[in-house]
Nucleic acid binder design. Sequence first.
RNA 1: GGUGCCAUCGUCUAGUGGUCCAGGACACUGGCCUCUCACGCCGGUAACAAGGGUUCGAGUCCCUUUGGCACUACCA
Length: 491
Amino acid sequence: MCENCNSGKSPVRVRFAPSPTGYLHVGGARTAIYNYFFAKHMGGTFYLRIEDTDRKRYNETALHDLMRDLKWLGLQWDEGPGCEGDCGPYFQSERLDIYHREIKKLLDAGCAYYCFCTEERLQEVRAEQEKSHVPVTGYDRHCRNISREEAEARIAAGEKAVIRFKVPETGVTEFDDMIRGHISYQNELLDDLVLIKRDGYPTYHFASVVDDHLMGTTHVLRGDEWISSTPKHELLYKAFGWQPPVWCHLPVILDKNGGKLSKRKGAASVGDFRDLGYLPETLVNYLALLGWNPGDDREVMTIKEMVESFTLERINPKSASFDEKKLQWMNGQHIHLCDDAFLKGIMKEGLAAKGIDLSKEPEERLDEIVKQLKPRAHFVQDLADMAVYFFVAPTTYDEKGAKKHFGEGSKEVATLVRDMLASIEDFKTPVIEKGFYDLAERCGHKVGELVGAPRLAVSGVTAGPGLWEMFEIIGKEEVLRRIDVAMPLMK
RNA sequence: GGUGCCAUCGUCUAGUGGUCCAGGACACUGGCCUCUCACGCCGGUAACAAGGGUUCGAGUCCCUUUGGCACUACCA
């Protein structure tokens, strides 16, 4: 073990310590983001530790997805699974010998004891407490005074036991939280928590304290839900004679209505948002801003910029509501920030998935399409979705648009436009534009009255890039052909 | 029930006793740009939870109330 990891003036070492039981929730993702930002800002180490001590809930797929999602977000860990460092193993299930070694210290020091209470007895105690409305709840310390000798004899005789922490019955446990300040708990309200379970695995409380110390963790940035267990952890550090880390409890992320963000009600995991078409940069940026700000008015930022500005002092204690509208806006902003070549790649993939063959497409034509679509995209798949008609003629026409643009008189207008276009030799944007303006003047229409029907005929929809640009990209012959095809639908 | 945490526009937030009749962003909305839709630009609506203190002065400090959330497992 690397006892020297946390010796002396140790640089920052932080961790993300998920338990592989389900998908990576955005709340968990933000915890990872803050840990990552802090480590990188301080020039420290960000490590990943897998808290797989619950054998019933362990899920192999969850573990795989978790690491995939973290990498997708760009939060590559410096140490952890796949990047062994000096403090491994990074799976708690592989550290059982360590926990047993450490629990012995506590047992020897009289800070922990064996407990033989059955599940049933515990339930009865709990039920009794609930019924009588006693202010102090939790384990009644039934086995607290069984001597070490007696306990070991009973275990040798085949009895099963857990090991509990001997929490002081009086006094106050205090600690400082980086973002909430000073917090204190009366010890009498704390119960003797289980450290080692009946199956020999440690509980979260024990394993995380032992590992955080042994792995040299200097700052613990974790979810709010841990705040009420922190006095227990603090007491554990004290029992071991170890220096506790700097605590930093992060507020929760709520849904639009202030409730829990859950899959049932919509997107809640990193994977959900990826599937929806969000860029990882967007998600990281948005999540980071949910509870933190750089201290100035910047909002759309790159990961590099956020790392540079990140400080714990600027994290908010207040829980925040997730606003997908703003996320959407921000995705558009990040799409603007992407370079065209990258976006072209995404568009090509999307089009290929739609069965469109791009093998004969000149790259310059694809570049031009990306240029036109980029400011209009809010989701990554918008690029391919909006690009389809550049390659395939529409087979249907937007219903509302047809009502508006294929109505009385549209055939006449379309014919005029068609003939004008047919007469253009150099089918380029400025020439097409001039053609429209000249035609408008000639026939006494406004340009606006000339574009609706041709746009719908050629693209099938009413919204999109500038018509002249669109026509140039699609090309003269095809534009004329599409207008001809739609002509019978006009009146 | 107990304990703890939290509390500025609908939402994310700035604000660390005077420079705040509270600033920015999203959303909403009026307008500009314009061949459509976006983008962009200019404007508008909109908040210090309530009540007590402390202070010459409070969004900022203290107390109470209210509300929200978390924990109260041999799950994390």
